[in-house]
Each structure stands twice: as structure tokens, then as C-alpha cells.
């Protein structure tokens, strides 16, 4: 069994996520990920990322791994991501979710990721516990919409947008683990580039990801 089968991470699952292909020597990643039939060819892992009810700060922090990005792209190939502008997630090895769930579209995107990604990672405070957007949760949505579109000072003939193109807000903001099974969490607002790098390289090497002092932080 892979180490990943014996998770002690807080991933909310009694059954472990499908193990990743084991990394070979020297960062060489091999496996049956791309079902091309070319057995000995080095295949890149597919990674998708998205930002739901977040601020893209976690993605910015992701870019803070700086020159290690070059090393990373040798190992992974990006599917849906703000970096690629691919609109829908295909079958992937790793899905990375920034942000919590504040509206219907967030839920649809999250479910698409869960359905397509072998491993799902919650990236950053908002994905992990709702973060800043969840601070609206002690107010009723009715009160909020009323205040924003009707009552706020300076509004004239305000009305609540009802265009079917717009996603409807949920009554409360939820962290993503409350809606789908999440395999790994990287807390932080944002998590540091080093923390993201550590978790990704651990996973790519088939290790249980672990953040030590300084890398694990909630702020």
C-alpha cells in the first residue's frame, strides 16, 4: 500500500484517495496517468486549479514559488486553471481549490473538480474554513441583499439583480470540505509559496505531505 493510503491528514474521508503514481528517481514521474499506452514514456501529472469565493491571493502565492515553477512544469501539466484559461476540468491527478463556496457556481465548479481530480486540495483560509467571505454568515442573506441593493445610502431605484446568467448566492458561505470530500488542506491567508511547494513536491514524490513550523500558519 502506498503511504497515501494511511492518511492521518484531516481529510474527511474514511477511504483514502486514490494513490498517485510513485515518483521515480530524481524527480522523474512515471505512471499511467496519460493513458497513451506509451508505457515507458515519462508522463506529467495533470493539475487543475481554480479560485472560488477567494481573492486569487492563493494563486498569486502559488506563483511565488518563483523559479521553481520551471521545475514544476517539468513534472506537471496544467488543465483548467487561470494560468491556462481552459474552461472546464478534464481528468486530472490533482485539483487545487482556492476560496470557499458563496454561490451556486462555486458549487458547480467544485463538483466538477471533485468528479475529475484524483486528489483534491483545499488551498488557503477561505477554502479551509470559509475565510473572510464567511464573516457574512451571522447575517441573513435577505438582510444582506436588502442592505446592498435597496437600503444602502445613495442608492436610487435599487433592485436585486435577477439575470439568469448570474449565480445565486447561498444563504451561508461554506468551506469546501462541507460540500465535497477533500483530501488535503493547505491553510494560510495566503499559504506561502514554500508551503505550496512543499505539499506539491511531497505528493509528487509519493510522500504524505507535512508542513513544519513556519510553513503551517492560518494567517
Amino acid at each position: 500500500m502506498s503511504e497515501l493510503d494511511t492518511l492521518n491528514s484531516p481529510a474527511n474521508t474514511p477511504s483514502p484517495p486514490t494513490p498517485l503514481p510513485q515518483a521515480g528517481e530524481g524527480s522523474q514521474v512515471s505512471g499511467e496517468v496519460n493513458q497513451s499506452g506509451e508505457g515507458h514514456h515519462v508522463k506529467k501529472l495533470k493539475v487543475a486549479t481554480t479560485s472560488l469565493a477567494g481573492c486569487f491571493g492563493c494563486h498569486m502565492s502559488f506563483l511565488d514559488i518563483d523559479e521553481r515553477l520551471l521545475e514544476l512544469v517539468k513534472l506537471v501539466e496544467f488543465d483548467r486553471s487561470p494560468l491556462t484559461d481552459i474552461k472546464h476540468c478534464g481528468p486530472c491527478d490533482i485539483g487545487i481549490i482556492e476560496g470557499g463556496l458563496c454561490n451556486a457556481e462555486n458549487v458547480h465548479v467544485l463538483r466538477e473538480f471533485r468528479a475529475n481530480c484524483k486528489i483534491l486540495i483545499a488551498l488557503g483560509a477561505c477554502a479551509v474554513n470559509g475565510g473572510l467571505p464567511a464573516q457574512r454568515n451571522h447575517l441573513s442573506l435577505t438582510t444582506i441583499l436588502e442592505e446592498v441593493y435597496h437600503a444602502q445610502h445613495g442608492l436610487v431605484d435599487g433592485f436585486i439583480p435577477n439575470d439568469p446568467e448570474l449565480p445565486l448566492p447561498l444563504d451561508k458561505v461554506h468551506p469546501i470540505h462541507e460540500v465535497v470530500k477533500v483530501d488535503y488542506f493547505i491553510p494560510g491567508c495566503p499559504p506561502s509559496g514554500d508551503a505550496i511547494w512543499k505539499v506539491l513536491t511531497d505528493l509528487l514524490a509519493g510522500r504524505e505531505p507535512e508542513l513544519g513550523h513556519g510553513l503551517i500558519h492560518y494567517d
Partner: peptide, 11 residues
């Protein structure tokens, strides 16, 4: 969880 939003938007 969308009930309040439906009521407020009439959608």
C-alpha cells in the same frame, strides 16, 4: 440553501 436568494430575486 438557495431559497432566500430565489425569493429575493424572484428567479
Amino acid at each position: 440553501a438557495l431559497t432566500q436568494a430565489r425569493q429575493m430575486t424572484g428567479r
